[in-house]
Amino acid sequence: MPIEIDIAHVARLARIELSERQLADYRAQLGVILDHAARVQELPTEGVAPTSHPLDMVNAFREDIVRPSLDRDEVLSQAPDATDGFFRVPPSLDNE
């Protein structure tokens, strides 16, 4: 039995619009994935250190040295809209 999820909420967080049909499909599909994750969580992991990264390495740093940035005209030419050196976007509020 797939885990119930609030698919409309997930879609809203991702700022994507889904049809009723898509909501139903994705709810079922994501539910199956969560169900699988729930089963993985049943494995006995006592005494196993959590892994956040597959590589057994730490501290891949760069020194604090400035490297050349991109050419602004080239950057802005890739954007849908720009003006006076700025990217131009619709007015944004956090809650749509």
């Binding site: 604090d64 400035v66 991109l70 006076d84």
Partner: peptide
């Protein structure tokens, strides 16, 4: 007040012209 940004080599410089200290990482 580092010389470069946290995850890329772009300069930390607030006097600079807009969008001149940007690269694929920080964009």
């Amino acid at each position: 007040e580092t010389q470069s940004k946290m995850f890329c080599g772009c300069a930390v410089d607030f006097e600079a012209e807009p969008n001149t200290n940007v690269c694929p990482t920080c964009l």
